[in-house]
Amino acid sequence: MTSVADLLRDASIRLRASGVESARIDARLLLGEAMQREIWPHESGPVTPAQLACFEDLLARRLTREPVSRILGRRAFWTLDLIVGPDTLDPRPDTETLIEAAIAAFADREPPNRIIDLGTGTGCLLLAALSAFPAATGLGIDKSKGAVEIARTNAVRNELSARAEFQTIDWDELPQDRGDLILSNPPYIEEATLSALAPEVVQFDPRDALSGGADGLEAYDSLAGVLPRLMAPQGIAILELGAGQRSAVETLMIGVGFAVQEVRKDLGNIERALVLKWNDTGDGGLDLRHLCLE
């Protein structure tokens, strides 16, 4: 009978040969799914024929570079267990930087009562923020009906549905609302560079959730038009940034009346979360570019 150790060794070799960098951990996760339990790194116990057949089916999908999260249909994000689907971006650890920034932004003030998530996808940002601010209610919007259905399911799955509302609508069409905290992870990849992304991204994430147009800034242009009417007077907005986009996005947001409170880096040392507040200095835009926290 085949052993766990033999399977993990063989699968890791095959995955690395196909270009998968996280070969060993991916093999463990897929074998765990096949055996319906956690697999420890140095296990050597037996694997039944039925478990082996299931594992080979899962492994064949990963060898095509389908992400583990999409094979399993779920992804851990912050403290949440989320389902993912073909209409949603696969939530990534980098995006958790926005939740860290939100907690820091409200550390010395009253927590937010109303949270708005623009382009909610799986609902990961809104639901994580609601878990961090237990007195708040929130609205997540997305133009994809499929994404909104998944976000609603995730709210129920994580026992947050009583405080979370989701609507299928473009953020340009959102009726009047005021958020104490506004979150958004907009599409920001330059259209011409999409084909160079990893197969896990370009082949399996929805293109609309990736492409930011020719310069990667189309969604930020749109956000600059809607944020001023959505943010409460003492509110905070936190936007995810692509690598190297800080200066351009800052310029857009300062131009519509915001000031930069913080720019927070992710674990890869990329400037990832742009924290905005209203500019009440009367100077046409407070430039706080020296404030960059890790």
Rank of each mutant, 00 (worst) to 15 (best):
V4H: 05
D6W: 10
L8K: 05
R9S: 14
R9P: 15
D10E: 08
S12H: 05
R24D: 08
I25Y: 11
E33N: 06
A34F: 04
P49N: 05
L52D: 13
E56A: 02
E56M: 12
A60Y: 13
L63Q: 13
P67T: 08
P67S: 07
I71D: 02
L82S: 10
L89V: 12
R92P: 05
D94Q: 03
I103F: 03
I103V: 15
P111N: 03
R114V: 13
I116E: 04
G119I: 02
G119M: 06
T122L: 00
T122M: 05
S131N: 09
P134F: 08
A136R: 10
G138S: 06
L139Y: 10
K145D: 15
G146H: 10
L160E: 13
L160V: 07
S161M: 11
A162C: 04
R163Q: 11
P175Q: 07
G179E: 05
P186R: 02
V201Q: 01
A209Y: 08
G212T: 12
A214T: 14
A219E: 00
G225V: 07
V226F: 05
Q234E: 13
G244K: 14
A248G: 01
V256Q: 04
E262F: 02
I270L: 14
A273L: 04
G284D: 03
C292D: 12
L293N: 15
L293V: 15
E294S: 12
